[in-house]
């Protein structure tokens, strides 16, 4: 049972990797960016577990800035993904402009909130 599961898992990972290899480069860049953001968020959460949540606003803005970045990047990824039929009529340039706007708002808020 365990063996089949692990075998399945291996198959799965292989399939996932091969499927993922087919992703276009720009999406891969986005993925990298997302991973970076999530890692930063995780580091901060671990840190807060160690030192406690005293400057709570800083913690909140720190983590939420990472989460926000990740979420926005996911949105961008969804929009520029050519396989996604829902956004055929949305040009990637427009999507990117929206993404930049959103990020600017996010980071302004973060700067306001962190201190």
């Amino acid at each position: 049972m365990v063996k089949t599961t692990s075998k399945d898992a291996q198959d799965l990972f292989r399939a996932l990797r091969s499927a993922y290899a087919a992703t276009p480069t720009n999406l891969k860049i986005i993925d990298l960016y997302i991973v970076f953001a999530i890692m930063t968020a995780v580091i901060q959460v671990v840190y807060v577990g160690i030192v406690g949540s005293f400057p709570f606003n800083s913690f909140l803005s720190g983590v939420l800035s990472c989460v926000g970045t990740a979420v926005l990047a996911v949105c961008l990824r969804i929009q520029v993904n050519k396989e996604n039929k829902e956004f055929k009529d949305l040009p990637p340039e427009r999507a990117f402009a929206d993404f930049v706007l959103c990020n600017v708002v996010l980071h302004l808020v973060i700067m306001n909130f962190i201190g």
Partner: peptide, 13 residues
């Protein structure tokens, strides 16, 4: 998703 993140941050302001 963006509404939750941005909205929460903004609300906390």
């Amino acid at each position: 998703a963006p509404l939750v993140v941005l909205g929460t941050l903004l609300a906390a302001l």
